[in-house]
């Protein structure tokens, strides 16, 4: 790109007409280069806080708290040692395990319930299936705070306050509508002839689901599971209201870092990085599926 720009001016003198054409071309090349550069600058600005979080998590507490920042200070794992309870004794493992349980179990249940539902909404649609679809979607627009109080009272009455199983059930309800929408959009892409062939061969519902649908939409199932996992892993409001010690999830554990506690920036950054890592890895690995999930399958 840059070499072409440098050699271009000498050729411009050739003829009036050609020079005009070339000048236009050169101008657009220069603009292209500038816009590419601008994209890089903006990209770096946006990723910088994430990079800074990672870098600071690998600095000593002393080097993390300097002003101006010491970008090139030696790296250490002390922040992570502190996060994992080296001196405080408070281990983040129980909350992390709770988060894994809540996210993974709820995601599995969501997928198991959503596949048959998506089937009944696309392959052999029930009557008024669009109404059902929009009912599912409308529940996503019901803010969690709208049902928070009764959930709290119910949990308190039947004794499931601070119980991870209750959180699993709530996360299942939270993500099921999204999963139904997404899986339906994948199912709708399967050619209808395939189902007709299966029906002629005498395959029943369970057989059709197992040997035709699941294999074909497995990339779609993976994308759906990814989105459900991320939403469950990130959730704070419900977990913060309905759990306290035993069933505390990772985001609730993070809230213990809300108030400053002397020199603790490296530890905070280590905690934020450690808790975000599963989402970062899953999200980067499945970038293309992300947009499909976020738009509930409306954008492909």
């Amino acid at each position: 790109m840059t070499t072409a720009l440098a050699s271009a001016p000498s050729k411009l003198a050739a003829s009036r007409r050609a020079s005009n054409a070339r000048a236009r071309h050169l101008g657009s090349r220069r603009a292209n280069f500038a816009l590419g550069l601008l994209a890089w600058v903006i990209g770096i600005l946006f990723v910088f806080p994430v990079f800074y979080m990672l870098l600071t998590s690998l600095h000593s507490e002393f080097n993390a708290a300097t002003n101006p920042p010491s970008f090139f200070a030696p790296l250490t794992l002390d922040g992570y040692r502190e996060f994992f309870g080296a001196s405080s004794g408070a281990s983040p493992w129980p909350p992390l395990i709770n988060s894994v349980t809540a996210s993974v179990v709820s995601t599995i249940v969501v997928i198991l319930l959503a596949i048959p539902a998506a089937y009944a909404l696309s392959v052999k649609p029930v009557e008024k299936w669009t109404d059902v679809m929009f009912f599912f979607l409308s529940t996503k627009f019901l803010p969690a705070v709208g049902g928070l109080l009764p959930l709290y009272i119910i949990a308190k009455t039947i004794g499931v306050l601070d119980n991870i199983n209750f959180i699993v059930i709530l996360y299942t309800a939270m993500n099921l509508p999204i999963a139904v929408w997404m899986l339906r959009s994948f199912l709708a892409d399967i050619p209808v002839e395939l189902f007709e062939a299966a029906a002629i061969d005498g395959a029943g519902l369970v057989r059709t689901l197992r040997s035709i649908i699941v294999p074909i939409i497995s990339p779609g199932i993976a994308a759906t599971a990814l989105i459900c996992f991320i939403f469950s892993w990130n959730e704070l409001l419900l977990a913060n209201t309905l759990t306290s010690i035993v069933a505390q999830t990772a985001p609730v554990f993070l809230t213990s870092f809300v108030t400053s506690q002397g020199l603790f920036l490296a530890k905070v950054c280590a905690a934020a990085t450690a808790v975000s890592l599963p989402v970062l890895i899953a999200g980067f690995a499945a970038q293309d599926k992300l947009v499909q999930g976020l738009s509930l399958g409306a954008v492909k």
Binding site: W233, N234, P251, T273, V275, G283, F284
Partner: peptide, 12 residues
């Protein structure tokens, strides 16, 4: 790089 901010857990 642009996607990264969205993949940080909101509390984090």
């Amino acid at each position: 790089m642009m996607i990264a901010p969205f993949l940080v857990v909101p509390v984090a």
